[in-house]
């Protein structure tokens, strides 16, 4: 009897559930089309906004996201009357109050054709102005915050308060959107093959950091750093007329929230002969790629303290990355000096 009671309860509940769910399924069937259409329309409108002259968009899978925090929702090649105009990417990445979704268009010549912020959950009235079509960073020309990116080269610096105007009182939002735009644009232009000449020296020449050497050859034994986290990728020996004049090493380590890779040259007397910052994937770290920063190390003795704020100036806007890079340079230089002194090269 009791068992029947239980099953009866189950059946009654099942009937209610079925009726409810099936009802829902019908509603879903009818609304899902509308939702899909609307989303498509929104997307098309956005795409047309960044590529006003395009006649159509074809999905592409060529564009790849550079890191895990930025998600590429979709990418399209913009088709013009005479061939491809460029690539438009819809992506979302982290901002201050939650994910920000935007569409970035990049033309074949590495110029940003337009940026549209679809969704931003930052502070209403402040950060959220990024998506406000009536908020102008430049009132004279009625340029919105995302609007200012149009016409910018992918290879530009993208530094807020320098070549990008910030939204008033929303520096963080401005920065995160700028970084997002830069990352997306770069990925798009990479996919287009234009690879705008970012301030990264594309093929680092090991000899550049050892100007006194005439030949540079890989070392027989790799230098190792005692500093945890620093891995020396390759060790080279520079010779001039057969005698060893110095060594250079390429090393990488964790920095603020990404990796930094440097190339360091050290002469036999322990002087740093040259430094190149090859790569920095920190979220705000790109400014340290500027050669001026690396140049500061030249002439400094390995083994002496190298410190941001004392003998090395940080790059404005990237203090933490500067600190990481400096530590890495020092670790690498120290390792090379040790290796040179050990004569194991």
């Amino acid at each position: 009897m009791k068992r029947w009671q239980m099953i009866k309860l189950g059946l009654i509940l099942a009937v209610y559930t079925i009726v409810g769910c099936v009802g829902l399924a019908f509603v879903y069937n009818s609304t899902s089309k509308t939702i899909a259409q609307r989303q498509e329309a929104d997307l098309q409108a956005g795409l047309h906004e960044v590529f006003p002259t395009a006649t159509g968009f074809t999905p592409t899978d060529k564009v790849k996201s550079p890191n895990s925090t930025i998600v590429f929702d979709a990418a399209y090649t913009a088709d013009g009357p005479s061939g491809s105009l460029g690539i438009a990417v819809k992506a979302h990445g982290p901002s201050y109050g939650g994910p920000t979704t935007l569409i970035v268009g990049v033309s074949t010549d590495g110029t940003i054709t337009g940026v549209k912020v679809l969704e931003n959950k930052d502070t209403p009235g402040l950060g959220a102005n990024a998506a406000n079509p009536k908020y102008y960073v430049d009132k004279a020309t009625k340029t919105t915050f995302p609007g200012q990116f149009a016409g910018k080269k992918v290879s530009d610096a993208f530094i807020v308060k320098q070549d990008v105007t910030a939204i008033t009182s929303a520096t963080i939002t401005s920065r995160s959107i700028t970084n997002l735009v830069q990352a997306v644009a770069k990925a798009a232009s990479d996919a287009l093959g234009t690879a705008g000449s970012a301030p990264v020296p594309s093929s680092p020449s090991s000899s550049a950091v050892l100007p006194s050497a005439d030949t540079v050859r890989p070392s027989s034994r790799a230098a190792t750093s005692s500093v945890p986290g620093v891995s020396i990728l390759e060790t080279l020996v520079g010779t001039k007329a057969g005698t060893i004049v110095g060594a250079s090493g390429k090393a990488t380590a964790k920095s603020y929230d990404g990796d930094v890779t440097v190339l360091v040259g050290v002469s036999t007397d322990g002087t740093i002969t040259g430094v190149q910052i090859l790569e920095c994937t920190d979220s705000l770290g790109s400014p340290i790629l500027a050669p001026e920063f690396a140049q500061q190390f030249v002439g400094k003795k390995a083994g002496t303290p190298l410190e941001i704020g004392t003998n090395i100036d940080a790059v404005s806007g990237a203090t933490l990355s500067s600190r990481g890079a400096t530590a890495l340079v020092k670790a690498t230089a120290d390792a090379l000096v040790t290796a040179l002194a050990g004569g194991g090269l």
């Binding site: 308060k161 520096t171 705000l284 704020g309 100036d313 940080a314 790059v315 404005s316 806007g317 203090t319």
Partner: peptide, 10 residues
């Protein structure tokens, strides 16, 4: 100044 990425030197 520090918050904007400056250093003690700045």
């Amino acid at each position: 100044i520090l918050k904007l990425g400056g250093t003690i030197t700045d």
